[in-house]
Structure formats: structure tokens, C-alpha cells
Simulated assay, not measured.
Amino acid sequence: MIPRFGNPPSKGIRYRARPGAYAILPREGRLLVTCQLDPGPDLQLPGGGIERGENPLPALHREVYEETGWSIAAPRKVGVFRRFVFMPEYDLWAEKLCHIYVARPVRRLGPPVEEAHEALWLSPEDAAEGLGNAGDRYFVRELLRRA
């Protein structure tokens, strides 16, 4: 069974399946995260939706680059979770199926190309406290617990 984090689905709302790939990116004792500034500041694991016909790993590389400006290497899947949310940028109620990877940030290619995103380096402890959703926080805490 895939664990759910956050609110259960609300009755009467049709949720659209929205698979995504997200990365925990450790380097030199810190984690690379993204801050989505609009509609309000929200710390997130870099990543996002897997487009129709796209495989998860190319989506992961694309999304991390778009949201942080970094290239990554050696992604390794560590888990999956789901959550039911409203996505205002798409005007969509979604059942997000979040595939979580650990990968190595290799090189900064430039600033984030996705509008209203800022790349930040945080301590793993600060990331485990500050990430905006419980599933992201859980997987970062698991990484800390295993270290």
C-alpha cells in the first residue's frame, strides 16, 4: 500500500492523477531544495509532474534543472507517497503520486528557469522541519535517520 500524507480526499471532488518525480539532493552536508515563491513561499523537494509519455528519470532530471538550475547524477528511488491537494497554478484538484529519489547534485548550470523558484541550500535538519508537505519531510527524516 502506498502511504498517504496530508488530508484525505474530500467527498464530491474529482481528483486527477498527477504522478511526479522529486529529489532529495545532498551535497557537502547540506540539501538543495527549491522555494516556490508564488502563490506564497513554500519550501519543496525539487521535482514535479511526469508528463504524458515521459519516463520518471528524465522527468526528474528536467524538473530539478528547471527548479534549481542544477544537473544531477546517480538517482536512486527511495520511496513513493500520495497526497490529495488543490494545485492553484493549474486550477486542478490532484491526487499526487510522488516518486522520491536521492540523487547527487553535480553542477550548477545557471539560475532556476522555472518562474518564481529559488534554489536554496539548507541543513538536512532545517529541511526536515521547513519543507512544506509532510511526505517530503518524512523522506528527509528517513534519510537523516539512516545516516
Rank of each mutant, 00 (worst) to 15 (best):
I2T: 09
I2N: 03
R4W: 02
R4L: 07
F5P: 06
F5Y: 05
N7S: 15
G12M: 10
P19G: 01
P19Y: 01
G20N: 00
G20D: 00
A21Y: 00
A21R: 00
Y22T: 01
L25I: 01
E28H: 01
E28Y: 00
G29Q: 01
R30K: 03
V33R: 06
L37C: 10
D38L: 08
P39D: 09
P41M: 14
D42G: 13
L45E: 02
L45C: 02
G47E: 02
I50E: 05
R52E: 13
N55W: 02
P56D: 02
P58N: 13
A59V: 07
L60M: 09
H61A: 15
R62K: 14
E63D: 14
E63P: 12
V64C: 11
V64S: 12
Y65F: 14
E66T: 06
T68C: 11
G69K: 07
W70K: 13
I72Y: 06
A73P: 02
R76E: 14
K77A: 15
V78I: 15
V80Q: 04
V80M: 06
F81N: 02
F81Y: 05
R82I: 01
R83L: 00
M87S: 12
E89I: 08
E89G: 06
Y90V: 08
L92D: 12
W93S: 15
K96H: 14
K96C: 15
C98M: 14
Y101M: 13
Y101V: 13
A103D: 07
P105D: 05
V106I: 12
R108W: 03
R108G: 03
R108Y: 03
L109Q: 03
G110C: 05
E114D: 12
L120Q: 11
L120G: 07
W121F: 08
L122A: 07
E125S: 07
A127V: 03
A128R: 05
A128G: 07
G130K: 15
L131V: 09
G132S: 15
N133K: 06
